[in-house]
Protein backbone atom coordinates (compact mmCIF):
# COMPACT_ATOMS: atom_id res chain seq x y z
CA UNK A 1 0.00 0.00 0.00
CA UNK A 2 2.13 2.84 -1.22
CA UNK A 3 2.80 5.19 -4.05
CA UNK A 4 6.09 4.81 -5.89
CA UNK A 5 7.69 7.92 -7.31
CA UNK A 6 10.71 7.79 -9.56
CA UNK A 7 12.25 11.16 -10.34
CA UNK A 8 14.95 11.39 -13.01
CA UNK A 9 16.42 8.04 -11.89
CA UNK A 10 19.79 7.25 -13.41
CA UNK A 11 22.19 4.33 -13.29
CA UNK A 12 25.79 4.75 -14.35
CA UNK A 13 27.98 1.69 -13.89
CA UNK A 14 31.60 1.89 -12.77
CA UNK A 15 32.80 1.51 -16.35
CA UNK A 16 30.88 4.65 -17.38
CA UNK A 17 28.04 2.78 -19.09
CA UNK A 18 24.73 4.52 -18.51
CA UNK A 19 22.05 1.84 -18.26
CA UNK A 20 19.19 4.08 -17.14
CA UNK A 21 19.19 7.64 -18.42
CA UNK A 22 16.82 9.64 -16.32
CA UNK A 23 13.48 7.91 -15.83
CA UNK A 24 10.51 9.56 -14.11
CA UNK A 25 7.43 7.51 -13.33
CA UNK A 26 4.73 8.21 -10.76
CA UNK A 27 2.84 5.08 -9.77
CA UNK A 28 -0.33 5.71 -7.77
CA UNK A 29 -1.37 3.50 -4.86
CA UNK A 30 -2.66 0.02 -5.80
CA UNK A 31 -1.68 0.40 -9.45
CA UNK A 32 0.15 -2.21 -11.50
CA UNK A 33 2.88 -0.60 -13.55
CA UNK A 34 4.47 -2.69 -16.30
CA UNK A 35 7.91 -1.87 -17.65
CA UNK A 36 8.29 -3.32 -21.11
CA UNK A 37 11.09 -3.12 -23.62
CA UNK A 38 13.66 -5.15 -25.52
CA UNK A 39 16.49 -6.82 -23.58
CA UNK A 40 19.13 -4.35 -22.51
CA UNK A 41 16.74 -1.41 -22.34
CA UNK A 42 17.34 -0.92 -18.62
CA UNK A 43 14.00 -2.18 -17.35
CA UNK A 44 15.46 -4.83 -15.05
CA UNK A 45 18.09 -2.40 -13.75
CA UNK A 46 15.32 0.06 -12.95
CA UNK A 47 13.38 -2.63 -11.09
CA UNK A 48 16.48 -3.65 -9.14
CA UNK A 49 17.02 -0.01 -8.18
CA UNK A 50 13.47 0.15 -6.84
CA UNK A 51 14.23 -3.05 -4.89
CA UNK A 52 17.45 -1.58 -3.52
CA UNK A 53 19.59 -4.31 -5.08
CA UNK A 54 21.36 -1.73 -7.25
CA UNK A 55 22.43 1.67 -6.02
CA UNK A 56 20.74 4.67 -7.60
CA UNK A 57 23.44 6.90 -9.05
CA UNK A 58 21.16 9.84 -9.86
CA UNK A 59 17.63 11.01 -9.11
CA UNK A 60 15.35 9.72 -6.38
CA UNK A 61 13.08 6.79 -5.68
CA UNK A 62 10.38 7.48 -3.12
CA UNK A 63 7.74 5.26 -1.46
CA UNK A 64 4.79 7.26 -0.13
CA UNK A 65 6.79 10.43 -0.65
CA UNK A 66 9.70 9.15 1.47
CA UNK A 67 12.98 8.92 -0.43
CA UNK A 68 14.41 5.40 -0.06
CA UNK A 69 17.65 5.82 -2.03
CA UNK A 70 19.84 5.18 1.00
CA UNK A 71 17.71 2.38 2.46
CA UNK A 72 18.81 -1.22 1.76
CA UNK A 73 16.52 -3.91 0.35
CA UNK A 74 16.09 -5.38 3.84
CA UNK A 75 14.33 -2.28 5.18
CA UNK A 76 12.35 -1.22 2.11
CA UNK A 77 9.42 -3.54 2.87
CA UNK A 78 9.09 -4.83 -0.66
CA UNK A 79 8.66 -8.32 -2.04
CA UNK A 80 10.11 -9.54 -5.30
CA UNK A 81 9.36 -12.45 -7.59
CA UNK A 82 12.48 -13.43 -9.51
CA UNK A 83 12.68 -14.77 -13.03
CA UNK A 84 14.08 -18.12 -11.88
CA UNK A 85 12.03 -17.85 -8.66
CA UNK A 86 15.11 -17.97 -6.36
CA UNK A 87 13.43 -20.37 -3.95
CA UNK A 88 15.67 -21.55 -1.11
CA UNK A 89 16.47 -25.11 -2.25
CA UNK A 90 17.24 -26.44 1.23
CA UNK A 91 13.95 -25.31 2.76
CA UNK A 92 10.49 -26.79 2.48
CA UNK A 93 7.78 -24.74 0.82
CA UNK A 94 6.44 -23.79 4.24
CA UNK A 95 9.82 -22.48 5.37
CA UNK A 96 10.37 -20.69 2.09
CA UNK A 97 7.18 -18.76 2.72
CA UNK A 98 7.78 -18.31 6.46
CA UNK A 99 11.38 -17.11 6.07
CA UNK A 100 10.58 -13.44 5.53
CA UNK A 101 8.10 -13.39 8.41
CA UNK A 102 10.55 -15.06 10.78
CA UNK A 103 13.23 -12.53 9.89
CA UNK A 104 10.84 -9.78 10.87
CA UNK A 105 10.06 -11.36 14.21
CA UNK A 106 6.44 -12.30 13.53
CA UNK A 107 4.97 -14.53 16.28
CA UNK A 108 4.98 -18.22 15.45
CA UNK A 109 1.22 -18.79 15.46
CA UNK A 110 0.68 -15.79 13.22
CA UNK A 111 3.30 -17.08 10.77
CA UNK A 112 1.46 -20.38 10.66
CA UNK A 113 -1.90 -18.70 10.11
CA UNK A 114 -0.62 -16.43 7.35
CA UNK A 115 1.33 -19.13 5.52
CA UNK A 116 -1.67 -21.44 5.50
CA UNK A 117 -3.98 -18.64 4.40
CA UNK A 118 -1.68 -17.71 1.51
CA UNK A 119 -1.15 -21.34 0.57
CA UNK A 120 -4.91 -21.73 0.36
CA UNK A 121 -5.29 -18.75 -1.97
CA UNK A 122 -2.59 -20.11 -4.25
CA UNK A 123 -3.69 -23.77 -3.92
CA UNK A 124 -0.39 -24.77 -2.39
CA UNK A 125 -1.73 -26.30 0.83
CA UNK A 126 -0.85 -29.88 -0.16
CA UNK A 127 2.71 -28.90 -1.16
CA UNK A 128 3.86 -27.20 2.05
CA UNK A 129 6.04 -30.14 3.12
CA UNK A 130 7.82 -30.48 -0.21
CA UNK A 131 11.14 -29.04 -1.24
CA UNK A 132 11.43 -26.79 -4.32
CA UNK A 133 13.14 -29.45 -6.43
CA UNK A 134 10.12 -31.71 -5.99
CA UNK A 135 7.82 -29.15 -7.61
CA UNK A 136 6.93 -28.47 -11.23
CA UNK A 137 7.73 -25.15 -12.86
CA UNK A 138 4.22 -23.81 -12.35
CA UNK A 139 4.17 -24.86 -8.69
CA UNK A 140 7.53 -23.19 -8.09
CA UNK A 141 6.15 -20.04 -9.63
CA UNK A 142 3.22 -20.17 -7.20
CA UNK A 143 5.53 -20.64 -4.24
CA UNK A 144 7.55 -17.62 -5.37
CA UNK A 145 4.28 -15.67 -5.53
CA UNK A 146 3.28 -16.99 -2.14
CA UNK A 147 6.57 -15.94 -0.60
CA UNK A 148 5.91 -12.42 -1.85
CA UNK A 149 2.25 -12.24 -0.84
CA UNK A 150 2.56 -13.73 2.65
CA UNK A 151 4.62 -10.80 3.87
CA UNK A 152 1.98 -8.26 2.87
CA UNK A 153 4.59 -5.76 1.68
CA UNK A 154 4.24 -2.16 0.54
CA UNK A 155 5.30 -2.89 -3.02
CA UNK A 156 5.46 -6.01 -5.20
CA UNK A 157 8.22 -6.28 -7.76
CA UNK A 158 8.05 -8.84 -10.55
CA UNK A 159 11.10 -9.56 -12.69
CA UNK A 160 9.84 -11.46 -15.74
CA UNK A 161 8.12 -14.00 -13.48
CA UNK A 162 6.39 -15.92 -16.26
CA UNK A 163 9.18 -16.26 -18.79
CA UNK A 164 10.14 -19.77 -17.63
CA UNK A 165 6.64 -21.19 -18.02
CA UNK A 166 5.06 -22.76 -21.08
CA UNK A 167 2.58 -20.72 -23.10
CA UNK A 168 -0.59 -22.19 -21.60
CA UNK A 169 0.53 -21.85 -18.00
CA UNK A 170 1.76 -18.35 -18.73
CA UNK A 171 -1.71 -17.36 -19.87
CA UNK A 172 -3.29 -18.81 -16.71
CA UNK A 173 -0.79 -17.22 -14.36
CA UNK A 174 -1.17 -13.87 -16.11
CA UNK A 175 -4.84 -13.80 -15.26
CA UNK A 176 -4.15 -14.99 -11.72
CA UNK A 177 -1.49 -12.39 -11.07
CA UNK A 178 -3.82 -9.66 -12.27
CA UNK A 179 -6.68 -10.89 -10.06
CA UNK A 180 -4.41 -11.31 -7.04
CA UNK A 181 -2.92 -7.88 -7.47
CA UNK A 182 -6.40 -6.37 -7.73
CA UNK A 183 -7.79 -8.15 -4.70
CA UNK A 184 -4.72 -7.49 -2.54
CA UNK A 185 -4.43 -3.93 -3.78
CA UNK A 186 -0.66 -3.80 -3.51
CA UNK A 187 1.23 -1.34 -5.68
CA UNK A 188 3.26 -3.38 -8.16
CA UNK A 189 6.01 -2.96 -10.69
CA UNK A 190 6.23 -5.69 -13.29
CA UNK A 191 9.05 -6.14 -15.78
CA UNK A 192 8.55 -8.11 -18.98
CA UNK A 193 9.71 -8.22 -22.57
CA UNK A 194 6.43 -9.79 -23.68
CA UNK A 195 4.14 -7.11 -25.10
CA UNK A 196 1.04 -9.30 -24.69
CA UNK A 197 1.75 -9.65 -20.95
CA UNK A 198 2.40 -5.93 -20.78
CA UNK A 199 -0.85 -5.01 -22.51
CA UNK A 200 -3.08 -7.33 -20.50
CA UNK A 201 -1.61 -6.67 -17.05
CA UNK A 202 -0.82 -2.99 -16.98
CA UNK A 203 -2.73 -0.17 -15.38
CA UNK A 204 0.19 1.98 -16.38
CA UNK A 205 2.36 0.83 -19.25
CA UNK A 206 5.90 2.13 -19.57
CA UNK A 207 7.65 1.36 -22.85
CA UNK A 208 11.40 1.64 -22.42
CA UNK A 209 14.16 1.81 -24.99
CA UNK A 210 17.89 2.35 -24.51
CA UNK A 211 17.55 3.43 -20.88
CA UNK A 212 14.79 5.93 -21.47
CA UNK A 213 11.02 6.01 -21.33
CA UNK A 214 9.63 6.02 -24.87
CA UNK A 215 6.02 6.29 -23.82
CA UNK A 216 4.03 6.05 -20.62
CA UNK A 217 0.31 5.72 -20.14
CA UNK A 218 -2.77 3.55 -20.38
CA UNK A 219 -1.97 0.45 -22.48
CA UNK A 220 -4.81 0.95 -24.95
CA UNK A 221 -3.95 4.62 -25.41
CA UNK A 222 -0.41 3.59 -26.19
CA UNK A 223 -1.68 0.98 -28.60
CA UNK A 224 -3.93 3.43 -30.36
CA UNK A 225 -1.55 6.35 -30.31
CA UNK A 226 2.05 5.16 -30.23
CA UNK A 227 4.38 8.09 -29.60
CA UNK A 228 7.16 6.79 -31.81
CA UNK A 229 7.98 4.21 -34.46
CA UNK A 230 9.74 2.22 -31.73
CA UNK A 231 6.57 1.94 -29.65
CA UNK A 232 4.50 1.32 -32.78
CA UNK A 233 6.64 -1.64 -33.77
CA UNK A 234 7.08 -2.97 -30.22
CA UNK A 235 3.48 -2.94 -29.04
CA UNK A 236 1.09 -5.11 -31.02
CA UNK A 237 1.57 -8.50 -32.66
CA UNK A 238 2.20 -8.65 -35.53
CA UNK A 239 3.74 -5.17 -35.30
CA UNK A 240 2.50 -2.07 -37.06
CA UNK A 241 3.37 -1.72 -40.73
CA UNK A 242 5.73 1.18 -41.25
CA UNK A 243 6.34 2.61 -44.73
CA UNK A 244 8.44 5.57 -45.82
CA UNK A 245 5.99 8.19 -47.15
CA UNK A 246 7.93 8.85 -50.35
CA UNK A 247 7.45 5.27 -51.48
CA UNK A 248 3.72 5.21 -50.96
CA UNK A 249 1.78 5.19 -54.16
CA UNK A 250 -1.78 6.35 -54.00
CA UNK A 251 -3.24 4.43 -56.89
CA UNK A 252 -6.63 6.08 -56.98
CA UNK A 253 -5.30 9.56 -56.90
CA UNK A 254 -6.85 9.88 -53.49
CA UNK A 255 -5.31 12.69 -51.53
CA UNK A 256 -4.48 11.86 -47.95
CA UNK A 257 -3.52 14.87 -45.95
CA UNK A 258 -0.21 13.89 -44.43
CA UNK A 259 1.06 16.14 -41.64
CA UNK A 260 3.85 18.45 -42.68
CA UNK A 261 6.88 16.70 -41.15
CA UNK A 262 5.64 13.18 -41.71
CA UNK A 263 8.18 10.88 -43.32
CA UNK A 264 6.83 7.54 -42.15
CA UNK A 265 3.36 6.13 -42.48
CA UNK A 266 2.10 3.39 -40.22
CA UNK A 267 -1.01 1.23 -40.00
CA UNK A 268 -1.93 -1.79 -37.91
CA UNK A 269 -2.49 -5.16 -39.63
CA UNK A 270 -6.04 -5.27 -38.27
CA UNK A 271 -6.83 -1.76 -39.55
CA UNK A 272 -6.00 -2.75 -43.12
CA UNK A 273 -8.15 -4.60 -45.59
CA UNK A 274 -7.51 -6.42 -48.84
CA UNK A 275 -9.68 -6.00 -51.92
CA UNK A 276 -9.32 -6.83 -55.56
CA UNK A 277 -9.89 -3.21 -56.51
CA UNK A 278 -9.12 -0.06 -54.66
CA UNK A 279 -12.04 1.25 -52.67
CA UNK A 280 -11.47 4.93 -53.31
CA UNK A 281 -11.10 6.23 -49.80
CA UNK A 282 -7.90 6.28 -47.75
CA UNK A 283 -4.74 4.33 -48.47
CA UNK A 284 -4.56 1.92 -51.37
CA UNK A 285 -1.43 -0.04 -52.11
CA UNK A 286 -0.83 -2.52 -54.91
CA UNK A 287 0.45 -5.66 -53.28
CA UNK A 288 1.46 -9.26 -53.99
CA UNK A 289 0.74 -12.03 -51.50
CA UNK A 290 4.03 -13.58 -50.34
CA UNK A 291 2.84 -15.65 -47.43
CA UNK A 292 -0.30 -16.70 -45.62
CA UNK A 293 -0.32 -17.53 -41.90
CA UNK A 294 -3.62 -19.02 -40.74
CA UNK A 295 -3.94 -18.79 -36.93
CA UNK A 296 -7.49 -20.09 -36.67
CA UNK A 297 -9.83 -17.23 -35.90
CA UNK A 298 -7.81 -15.02 -38.19
CA UNK A 299 -5.14 -15.18 -40.86
CA UNK A 300 -2.20 -12.95 -41.54
CA UNK A 301 -1.29 -12.10 -45.11
CA UNK A 302 2.30 -11.15 -45.73
CA UNK A 303 2.38 -8.97 -48.83
CA UNK A 304 5.02 -7.15 -50.82
CA UNK A 305 3.90 -3.57 -51.29
CA UNK A 306 5.74 -0.33 -52.02
CA UNK A 307 9.06 -2.21 -51.76
CA UNK A 308 8.26 -3.27 -48.21
CA UNK A 309 6.64 -6.17 -46.46
CA UNK A 310 3.18 -5.39 -45.19
CA UNK A 311 1.11 -7.60 -42.85
CA UNK A 312 -2.66 -7.59 -43.09
CA UNK A 313 -5.07 -9.38 -40.78
CA UNK A 314 -8.11 -10.98 -42.33
CA UNK A 315 -10.84 -12.67 -40.34
CA UNK A 316 -11.20 -16.46 -40.43
CA UNK A 317 -9.73 -18.66 -43.13
CA UNK A 318 -7.99 -16.83 -45.97
CA UNK A 319 -8.79 -17.72 -49.56
CA UNK A 320 -5.84 -15.80 -50.93
CA UNK A 321 -3.05 -17.61 -52.67
CA UNK A 322 0.65 -17.00 -53.01
CA UNK A 323 1.52 -14.61 -55.80
CA UNK A 324 -2.00 -13.19 -55.96
CA UNK A 325 -2.21 -9.48 -56.81
CA UNK A 326 -4.49 -7.39 -54.64
CA UNK A 327 -4.83 -3.98 -53.09
CA UNK A 328 -4.17 -3.23 -49.44
CA UNK A 329 -6.41 -0.47 -48.16
CA UNK A 330 -6.62 1.38 -44.88
CA UNK A 331 -9.03 4.07 -43.73
CA UNK A 332 -7.52 7.55 -43.29
CA UNK A 333 -8.36 7.80 -39.57
CA UNK A 334 -6.46 4.59 -38.92
CA UNK A 335 -3.20 5.89 -40.30
CA UNK A 336 -0.31 6.94 -38.06
CA UNK A 337 2.31 9.45 -39.10
CA UNK A 338 5.85 9.80 -37.79
CA UNK A 339 8.51 12.42 -38.46
CA UNK A 340 12.13 11.83 -39.47
CA UNK A 341 13.13 11.29 -35.79
CA UNK A 342 10.58 8.53 -35.47
CA UNK A 343 8.31 10.69 -33.27
CA UNK A 344 4.58 10.93 -33.82
CA UNK A 345 3.55 13.69 -36.16
CA UNK A 346 -0.02 14.99 -36.12
Amino acid sequence: MATVDLKDVRKVYAGGVEAVKGVSIAIPDKALCVLVGPSGCGKSTLLRMIAGLETITGGTCAFDGKVVNAIGPTERDIAMVFQNYALYPHMKVYDNMAYGLRNRGTPKDEIERRVHETAKILELSHLLERRPRELSGGQRQRVAMGRAIVRNPKVFLFDEPLSNLDAKLRGQMRVEIKNLQRSLGVTSVYVTHDQLEAMTLADILVVMNAGQVEQLGNPLDIYEKPASTFVASFIGAPPMNLLPVTDVKFSDGTVISAPAQATTLGFRPEDADVTQRSSGDGLALDATVEGVEPVGAESFLYCAAAGQRVVVRVAGRSSHELGEKLTVTARPEKLHWFDSNGKRAG
Binding site: A51, G52, L53, T74, F82, Y99, G100, N103, R104
Partner: peptide, 21 residues
Protein backbone atom coordinates in the same frame (compact mmCIF):
# COMPACT_ATOMS: atom_id res chain seq x y z
CA UNK B 1 23.03 -18.20 -7.17
CA UNK B 2 23.19 -14.48 -6.40
CA UNK B 3 19.41 -14.26 -6.72
CA UNK B 4 19.06 -16.40 -3.57
CA UNK B 5 21.10 -13.95 -1.54
CA UNK B 6 19.11 -11.07 -2.99
CA UNK B 7 15.83 -12.82 -2.24
CA UNK B 8 16.98 -13.36 1.35
CA UNK B 9 17.95 -9.69 1.63
CA UNK B 10 14.51 -8.65 0.41
CA UNK B 11 13.04 -11.17 2.85
CA UNK B 12 14.55 -9.09 5.62
CA UNK B 13 17.61 -11.18 6.50
CA UNK B 14 20.71 -9.19 7.38
CA UNK B 15 24.18 -10.25 6.34
CA UNK B 16 24.99 -12.55 9.25
CA UNK B 17 21.52 -14.11 9.19
CA UNK B 18 21.81 -14.65 5.43
CA UNK B 19 25.09 -16.43 5.97
CA UNK B 20 23.76 -18.85 8.59
CA UNK B 21 20.36 -19.52 7.02
Amino acid sequence: PKALIEAAAIDGARELKRFWT
